[in-house]
């Protein structure tokens, strides 16, 4: 049995805006297991960052937590005062953001920034903090730590800055590391290096990782499990094998089918029609039904519950109801899955 380190239960977060309440996260539940990487994917505005900021206690002042709890070591983080939360942030749960510049102070040396976190959270002396900072700089793969310690962020490339942010995030040996699109701003080569770094460090420190991205290639590379978000909800969750080789929600089908990776030339790419919904008045029922070719009457009226497909795999679509008609996935997607399955079967026999 896997040990659960963090449990998000029925999290519901809205924002007060001039136009009305934006229902950013709607009844999201998931567990994070010890030592695993759980990816969260979904299009822009689907609620990925709001979910992670809720865990970090970093929601903006206009946020309203309508419902739910986030359990860590038996404590509901959502009930903590800012003062108590700051004891967990950084020390137990740390975060790496997309743009390293937003988390680095441009007028402070890299060394001081890493040391600061050690001095504040772990009560290191200045000397101890410096020694540990130098170790961390080498650990994230940057040469000449002594020289780098004294430099400022603008003297680093984008990839190196992200390494520093990771060094700061890991400085206090957190149990949970949340990475919110840590490589989106980087090119493929640098991205590959950062992903490898995160994986190495994870093995080294045994942290549990929540990895947010919209790149399904990155998810396949990084994670053990993946949750697919759409319009503030997790619509499908399972192991990466469950979700990539046996996807069940029409939105997951659309996401996977529109990847050009295995697409033959000359054949049109599969495209999900329409645009993501407005979250001030989210659609009734299954929010994806307006863009789905598989919608049934019930989809426009009732929210589908999470249907369990296996011990590891669930999806929220009425197509999984016992009385639902049997439908096929998009042909292009099914064909690709078949090809991959045959390829992997073949590999086993060799």
């Amino acid at each position: 049995m896997k040990e659960t380190v963090l449990s998000v239960k029925n999290l519901t977060v809205s924002f007060k805006t001039h136009g009305g309440m934006v229902q950013a996260v709607r009844d999201v539940s998931f567990d994070l297991y010890q030592g695993e990487t759980l990816a969260i994917v979904g299009e822009s505005g689907s609620g990925k960052s709001v979910t992670s900021k809720s865990i970090m206690g970093l929601l903006s002042p206009n946020a309203v937590i309508e419902k739910g709890e986030i359990l860590y070591n038996g404590t509901n983080l959502l009930k903590l005062s800012e003062n108590d939360f700051s004891k967990y942030r950084g020390a137990d749960i740390a975060m790496v953001f997309q743009d390293p510049m937003t988390s680095l102070n441009p007028v402070m040396t890299i060394g001081d920034q890493i040391s600061e976190s050690l001095i504040n959270n772990l009560k290191y002396t200045k000397e101890q903090a410096k020694a540990r900072s130098l170790e961390l700089i080498s650990l994230v793969g940057i040469d000449s730590p002594e020289k780098r310690f004294k430099q400022y962020p603008h003297q680093f490339s984008g990839g190196m800055r992200q390494r520093i942010v990771i060094a700061i995030a890991l400085s206090c040996n957190p149990k949970i590391l949340i990475c919110d699109e840590p490589t989106t701003a980087l090119d493929v080569t640098t991205q590959a290096q950062i992903l490898e770094l995160i994986k190495d460090l994870q093995q080294h420190f045994g942290v549990s990782v929540i990895f947010i991205t919209h790149d399904l290639g990155v998810v396949a590379n990084m994670s053990d499990r993946v949750g697919v978000m759409y319009a503030g909800k997790i619509v499908e969750i399972g192991t990466v094998e469950d979700v990539y080789y046996d996807p069940r929600h029409p939105y997951t089908w659309g996401l996977l089918a529109s990847i050009p990776a295995f697409q033959a030339k000359g054949v049109e790419l599969y495209a999900i029609p329409g645009a993501p919904p407005q979250m001030i008045n989210p659609p009734k029922g299954d929010a994806f039904s307006l863009r789905s070719d598989w919608s049934m009457k019930v989809d426009f009226v009732h929210q589908p519950p999470m249907f369990k497909i296996s011990e590891t795999h669930s999806a929220a679509t009425w197509l999984l109801h016992p009385n639902a008609p049997k439908v096929d996935r998009p042909a292009q997607l099914q064909e690709r899955i078949n090809v991959l399955m045959r390829m992997h079967e073949g590999g086993k026999n060799e």
Binding site: T189, E196, A220, N221, Y244, I259, L340
Partner: peptide, 23 residues
């Protein structure tokens, strides 16, 4: 070759074995 070896593909089983090489 290095660039190609760095592209992640949406196939978990091959991704877990993909080896990247540096240029």
């Amino acid at each position: 070759r290095s660039l190609m070896s760095a592209i992640p593909t949406p196939d978990p089983k091959s991704e877990k074995q993909r080896a990247r090489f540096a240029y």
